[in-house]
Nucleic acid binder design. Sequence first.
DNA 1: ACCCTACCTGATCAACTGATCAGCTATCTA
DNA 2: TAGATAGCTGATCAGTTGATCAGGTAGGGT
Lengths: 212, 212
Amino acid sequence: MATSSTTDERTTRPSADATRERIIAAAVDRFADRSFEGATTREIAAAAGVSQPSLSYHFRSKDELWRAAVDSLFARLDATMRTRIEGLRGVDLLTTAKLAVRDFIVFSAENPQLHRIITQESKGEGERIDWLVDVHIRPLYEATTAMFEQLAAEGAVPDVPAPFLYYLLTGAGPTIFVLAPECRRLAGFDPRSPEAIATHADAVIDLLFRGA
Amino acid sequence: MATSSTTDERTTRPSADATRERIIAAAVDRFADRSFEGATTREIAAAAGVSQPSLSYHFRSKDELWRAAVDSLFARLDATMRTRIEGLRGVDLLTTAKLAVRDFIVFSAENPQLHRIITQESKGEGERIDWLVDVHIRPLYEATTAMFEQLAAEGAVPDVPAPFLYYLLTGAGPTIFVLAPECRRLAGFDPRSPEAIATHADAVIDLLFRGA
DNA sequence: ACCCTACCTGATCAACTGATCAGCTATCTA
DNA sequence: TAGATAGCTGATCAGTTGATCAGGTAGGGT
């Protein structure tokens, strides 16, 4: 077996995975800050500590790097939400929903890049927003609206169509973190501090679930 | 001196003002869609129907054009809110607040560019976000938080610090319109339709003021 | 009627963009 | 240990960027 390689063909060396991850991490930040067009491959390369052609080696194009960066962000979100939901099997829906919303808000505080990128790409037409919606956003949307519809049947959320509740949550939840630099200048505090995150999460949950 | 012109010296011809406005209108859209770095002067010029050097003639730099575009957006918002507030002198605070929130949401539906631009610029450091906050956002912030603090004393809004209420409003209100292209693909309806605007405004007001 | 200049443009600039290619080096395989 | 190749880079490409400049034209003041 030693020589006759099985289906598991390792063609990449360990060091490549590490630099790939460093590039993706840098790309997440730069794309979120300066948008797809505004972020330059040289900036990303410099932030990752590699040369600019190195991006072309690890990723076919700037566009593919962008997709890898978005995949990375959504993988983090999916992991967070999935483990939370699965850890609450048997718990009543309202409690589960509240904890899920809180996790989502904590995630948004730690990863505001996701919402910045979605906002940037949500302009007129574009291949990237189609890909974003079809591959990543729609599953979350379906799960979230299904949850809201069950809660509405219990009277646990306001009598508002589920899509609107979805956008109320995705708007009210992450915005204060997306605008964190503005908030620091404007209100004089860092919304990403643990205390602010807790206050904000409490407020969103209180509004959405009417303090039930 | 010949005519002993008064202080009112008209050095610009009427046609200049018209093209200036066309350029600003085009700049608002392009900057909102593609961010400061992503929008090109050639795109803006083409959208305005003028040559690219024409932008340099009317505006000292791309940066100054961006400021003029933002000024234009805030002038629209200020006019909307000011006339509303002044038209309600003597009306009780809660009613005034509800109508102001509704106007703000309608404005956000018709001018999602404002929130797109603020979001884009609210990254780490930058001269533009400082200017945005100091010149335009802070007055609105002060007025809004003052209003919320009065309402809190009446028990008309949830017991949450005013800055958090401010970000709940600026998040929950405009986001569905900022993400309108996503919403169309995801939920299958246009949030900027009159019916959707009304439903959304009702929902935000219901949440924020607890259906009072 | 004349001149002046506000208005607008084509041509062009240096700087920068993403991508490509040849070549170097360290690691893995045999 | 020798050969092969994955990993990475400097040099360089054509295309695009914001800005400048010289020049042309039309509208207004005298």
